[in-house]
C-alpha cells in the first residue's frame, strides 16, 4: 500500500470501519512508514479527543421536563395533529403501491390517458356552425373547399337536405348529427382529421338502393344545382354521406 492510499483509509481505520483485509494491509504499511504512522497516531488522538469532549456545562441535568413542557405548549397553543392529504383519504389508493416508482409511473399513465382522452374528445367533437343561407350551392361548395377539402361530400348532404320538407329533416337530423333549420341551410358539421372520413363512420353504403332510387337522388341533387351531384365515391361504390339509409329510402 502506498502512502496516499494509506492516508485515505486512516480515518476509517480509526473508526473501526475498515474491512479486515484493508486493516491488515494498512497495518503493514504503517509499520514500515514512520511518517504515515505519525499521521495515524495524530489522527487517532484527535478523533478520540473530539469524541471525548465533554458536553457544555448544564445547570440541571435533563429530567422528564421536556415532555411536560411540550404538553403544556401543545395545550396552550391549541395545537392539533395536522392530517396530511394522504391521511384524509383522497390519496389512499396510492398506498396500494408500496413502491414509489410504481405509484408515480401509474399516476403518470393515468394523467396521460386523461389528457389524451380530453384532446381526442376535443379533436373529435370540434364543430363549426356555418350560416349558408345567403349562398348558392356553388358558393357553398367553394366555401367548404376553402375550409376543408375533406368536406366536399357534405355538399351533397346540404343539397339533399335542401330538397326535404322540414318534417323530414327534423325526423333524422339528430341521427345525422347535423343541425338544420328548414328555411335556411344551416349546417353544423364535425371537422375531423382526414383519416376519419375513411373510417366508415360518415360513409354509408347505398348498395341496397335500387338504381332508380339512386338515380332519383342524383336527379334531386342535380336539380338543386350541385356542381357535383353524383354520390359515386370511394372506388366506384355508391356511397353517400348520409344516415340512416332506411329513412333515406323513404324519401
Amino acid at each position: 500500500m502506498r502512502c496516499a492510499k494509506a492516508r485515505k483509509y486512516m480515518l476509517e481505520m480509526v473508526e473501526e470501519g475498515l474491512s479486515p483485509l484493508l486493516q491488515q494491509r494498512l497495518k503493514v504499511h504503517l509499520e514500515s512508514c514512520p511518517t504515515c504512522q505519525g499521521e495515524y497516531d495524530a489522527l487517532q488522538e484527535l478523533y478520540y479527543t473530539v469524541k471525548g469532549l465533554p458536553l457544555p456545562q448544564v445547570a440541571e441535568p435533563l429530567g422528564t421536563e421536556v415532555l411536560g413542557l411540550v404538553r403544556q405548549r401543545i395545550r396552550a397553543e391549541g395545537i392539533e395533529p395536522s392530517l396530511s392529504l394522504w391521511n384524509r383519504g383522497g390519496w389512499r389508493i396510492l398506498s396500494l403501491f408500496r413502491r414509489p416508482l410504481l405509484a408515480y409511473t401509474s399516476l403518470v399513465v393515468i394523467v396521460g390517458l386523461v389528457i389524451g382522452g380530453i384532446l381526442f374528445w376535443f379533436s373529435y367533437s370540434q364543430r363549426v356552425t356555418v350560416d349558408l343561407s345567403d349562398l348558392t350551392l356553388d358558393e357553398v361548395e367553394q366555401a367548404w373547399e376553402l375550409i376543408s377539402p375533406e368536406m366536399e361530400v357534405d355538399m351533397e348532404l346540404i343539397a339533399l337536405l335542401d330538397s326535404l320538407s322540414p318534417e323530414e329533416i327534423s325526423s333524422f337530423s339528430d341521427e345525422l348529427k347535423v343541425e338544420v333549420e328548414p328555411d335556411l341551410i344551416l349546417s353544423e358539421v364535425p371537422i375531423l382529421p382526414s383519416g376519419y372520413l375513411n373510417s366508415g363512420y360518415f360513409y354509408y353504403d347505398l348498395s341496397d338502393f335500387s338504381p332508380e332510387e339512386i338515380e332519383e337522388i342524383i336527379q334531386q341533387l342535380s336539380d338543386k344545382g350541385s356542381s357535383n351531384p353524383s354520390p359515386q365515391k370511394e372506388g366506384g361504390g355508391a356511397r353517400l354521406f348520409l344516415k340512416p339509409i332506411d329513412e333515406f329510402v323513404s324519401i
Binding site: 458536553l55 457544555p56 456545562q57 448544564v58 445547570a59 435533563l62 421536563e65 421536556v66 415532555l67 413542557l69 411540550v70 405548549r73 401543545i74 397553543e77 395545537i79 392539533e80 395533529p81 395536522s82 392530517l83 396530511s84 394522504w86 391521511n87
Partner: peptide, 27 residues
Amino acid sequence: LRIIGDSDEAADIAQSTFVKVYRSLHS
C-alpha cells in the same frame, strides 16, 4: 446542546422539535 452550546436554548429547540413532531406525525 452540543451544536449550540446553550442549555436553555437547547431545551427550547428540543421542545419545538417535539411540538413539530406532534403536529406533523401523521405525515
